[in-house]
């Protein structure tokens, strides 16, 4: 993660001090010549974390490779809101094929570039459903072959495009359309789901990272670093969804930050099987602070019966904190 920490922030943001940095240390988004790869006019909801994450990630990738980039996209919100025919928000060569094959499409793109002797680089992107569920076979295949692709998963923890159904990235207790807040154990089931960043790491690929839209400098730096490498690379970005999570549009970044500061979403990077860096948190916040603003967890706060479930979620956060050594009183976050 090679970026200058910005210490001049106000009201908890990291963006304001950017102007005080030397030009070459500033963010990609502050650059007048940024690619604007995902341009304005798309149909994403107000406060969409995925649109924000994609814009920063793809622009960073574009800058890292001098604009010589093509992208494959899985079916999902990002695909639908960006390309209502005959309009497109993509200012880069972009292909959408199917829900479950974006990694394989990207493999084909990379293979073609290699066969043709071109230096053009390839990214693929999808939501959590397209990545951790239906596209998982193709993703794992792309990883194990170490194909020259950066895959970016924008994780909003459910199938938002089809109306908020549970995916294997949906957290326990969360209400979705297929895990309603009903019965003895309302919301999504404990003990299910998969941790795809760790699974990616287990493929021994050169680079794996997690990030959130709460720290966009970190996301830019990780994408930039990923594009300096070759082989299969994976970045998993937590992108809150106001619609699916039942949060205010203006709270997207705040919610993402709380996911990090509670320990529920560990931000780390690594490669070749090992974790090499962790985004530390100064002091852990209780998970209630993250859960309470989200309507998908509202059933946990209706009466006293939710306390036990909240305790189980706290245990998950505590386990993450211990596993990744997240706490550092001197941390920036």
């Amino acid at each position: 993660m090679g970026y200058t920490p910005v210490k001049f922030y106000q009201t908890g943001t990291h963006t304001i001090g950017n102007r005080l940095l030397p030009a070459d240390a500033r963010t990609v988004q502050s650059d007048d010549d940024r690619a604007n790869a995902l341009s304005c006019g798309h149909r994403a909801c107000q406060g969409c974390g995925e649109a924000l994450g994609a814009r920063y990630a793809v622009d960073a990738a574009m800058r890292a490779v001098g604009g010589d980039l093509v992208a494959a996209n899985a079916t999902g919100c990002l695909e639908v809101f960006s390309t209502p025919y005959p309009e497109t928000s993509w200012q880069i060569p972009w292909i959408h094929s199917l829900f479950g094959n974006a990694p394989a499409i990207a493999t084909g793109l990379a293979a073609a570039m290699k066969a043709k002797g071109k230096a053009t680089r390839v990214i693929a992107q999808g939501g959590d459903g397209g990545t951790t569920d239906i596209g998982f076979g193709c993703l794992s295949g792309m990883f194990e072959r170490n194909d020259d692709v950066l895959y970016i998963c924008y994780d909003n923890e459910a199938y938002m495009n089809t109306g908020v159904q549970r995916s294997s990235a949906t957290p326990p207790a969360a209400r979705t359309a297929t895990t309603p807040a009903l019965g003895a154990a309302p919301g999504n089931v404990f003990g299910q789901g998969k941790d795809v960043p760790r699974i990616a790491l287990a493929h021994e690929i050169p680079y794996v990272a997690t990030a959130t839209v709460a720290n966009l400098r970190d996301l830019e730096a990780k994408v930039t670093h990923a594009m300096s490498l070759h082989g299969a690379r994976y970045i998993h970005v937590l992108v809150p969804c106001p619609l699916g999570w039942g949060t205010a549009s203006h709270d997207t970044i705040k919610i993402a930050r709380l996911a990090v500061e509670t320990g529920l979403f560990p931000v780390f990077e690594g490669g070749n099987g090992d974790v090499t860096g962790v985004l530390k948190i100064r002091a852990k916040r209780p998970v209630e602070e993250y859960l309470k603003p989200q309507k998908r967890f509202a059933h946990l706060f209706k009466d006293a019966t939710g306390a036990a479930t909240i305790a189980r979620l706290q245990a998950i956060a505590d386990r993450n904190i211990a596993r990744y050594g997240l706490i550092d009183p001197a941390a920036e976050v």
């Binding site: 093509v70 494959a72 292909i95 094929s97 199917l98 479950g100 094959n101 394989a104 499409i105 990207a106 493999t107 084909g108 793109l109 990379a110 293979a111 073609a112 570039m113 066969a115 043709k116 053009t120 076979g137 193709c138 295949g141």
Partner: peptide
């Protein structure tokens, strides 16, 4: 499924 998908990507490039 991946075979045809890789072929699609390659052909599109």
């Amino acid at each position: 499924f991946a075979a045809m998908s890789v072929a699609i990507g390659a052909s599109a490039a």
